[in-house]
Simulated assay, not measured.
Amino acid sequence: MIPRVAAGALVLKNNKFLLVKRMDEPDAGLWAVPGGKLEYGETLEQCAVREIKEETNIDIKINGIASITEIILKDFHYVIIDYLAEYLSGSIKSSSDAMDAGFFGIDEIKGMNVNKTSLKLINCIINNEKLPVNIIENK
């Protein structure tokens, strides 16, 4: 199995984070940073912008790399580059592989079922840790 490359973005608007409820595995039904697979010929930044638009109908501005995540599971190996981004325009409308989407404050996120890697990234941002963060999930 060849590892896949994906990109996403942790989008901020008024001190709230954009999250999507995943429709597909892994982590179906959990809230996560939106993103998806890199397509041939596009840059990682283009992929992140496209995926956020497809999943949430939101236009964003990329501000830099937030994290590099490696997830290696039994039949799943992804390298994910998540960017830090700001909201530009658009009304949230979940689509593509997102069951739901919204902007959430940290107090709301604490009560949500958020996947491990997204929660770790959000906590790093809140705690003003040095970026990019390296996250490795290996089972």
Rank of each mutant, 00 (worst) to 15 (best):
75 D>C: 03
114 V>I: 11
36 G>N: 04
65 I>G: 00
9 A>L: 11
91 S>T: 15
118 S>T: 15
123 N>Y: 09
101 A>C: 10
129 E>N: 14
40 Y>A: 08
109 I>G: 01
107 D>C: 01
125 I>E: 04
106 I>P: 05
30 L>T: 02
34 P>S: 06
130 K>D: 11
89 S>C: 09
60 I>Y: 11
93 K>R: 15
95 S>G: 12
4 R>K: 14
119 L>W: 11
50 R>P: 14
100 D>W: 01
28 A>Q: 12
106 I>G: 12
50 R>C: 00
39 E>H: 13
83 Y>Q: 02
57 N>M: 06
48 A>H: 11
21 K>G: 05
109 I>P: 00
21 K>D: 00
126 I>P: 05
117 T>H: 13
21 K>R: 15
27 D>T: 04
24 D>W: 12
8 G>M: 07
65 I>T: 11
36 G>E: 06
104 F>T: 03
81 I>R: 08
130 K>Q: 12
53 K>R: 15
90 G>I: 13
38 L>C: 08
76 F>N: 10
45 E>I: 12
130 K>L: 14
136 I>D: 09
41 G>E: 09
25 E>T: 12
97 D>P: 00
131 L>T: 04
64 G>N: 05
74 K>S: 14
104 F>I: 06
77 H>G: 02
101 A>W: 06
28 A>G: 12
134 N>H: 14
92 I>L: 15
17 F>C: 05
113 N>K: 15
29 G>Q: 04
4 R>D: 10
51 E>G: 02
20 V>K: 07
127 N>M: 06
27 D>V: 09
118 S>G: 02
112 M>F: 00
54 E>T: 00
136 I>E: 10
29 G>F: 05
67 S>Q: 07
83 Y>N: 05
135 I>C: 15
57 N>L: 03
63 N>E: 14
107 D>E: 15
25 E>P: 03
9 A>W: 05
7 A>E: 09
15 N>W: 03
131 L>Q: 06
103 F>Q: 08
30 L>G: 00
10 L>D: 09
120 K>I: 09
39 E>K: 15
76 F>R: 03
102 G>L: 06
120 K>Y: 01
131 L>Y: 02
10 L>C: 13
67 S>C: 10
78 Y>M: 08
51 E>M: 12
65 I>F: 07
6 A>C: 07
35 G>L: 09
116 K>T: 11
39 E>N: 14
26 P>T: 10
119 L>Y: 11
11 V>F: 00
113 N>E: 09
57 N>R: 07
117 T>D: 03
125 I>K: 06
59 D>V: 13
8 G>I: 04
52 I>E: 03
37 K>C: 02
33 V>P: 00
78 Y>C: 04
62 I>F: 02
55 E>M: 15
46 Q>T: 08
137 E>Y: 15
90 G>V: 12
31 W>R: 05
81 I>C: 08
104 F>A: 05
125 I>L: 14
90 G>C: 11
42 E>D: 12
84 L>I: 14
49 V>S: 09
56 T>E: 07
104 F>L: 00
98 A>Q: 00
82 D>M: 06
52 I>N: 05
83 Y>W: 10
101 A>H: 05
22 R>S: 07
4 R>I: 09
94 S>C: 15
134 N>P: 01
90 G>N: 11
78 Y>R: 12
36 G>I: 04
11 V>D: 01
3 P>E: 03
67 S>L: 12
118 S>Y: 09
126 I>H: 10
73 L>C: 02
125 I>D: 07
86 E>N: 08
103 F>M: 13
63 N>A: 10
128 N>P: 02
65 I>R: 03
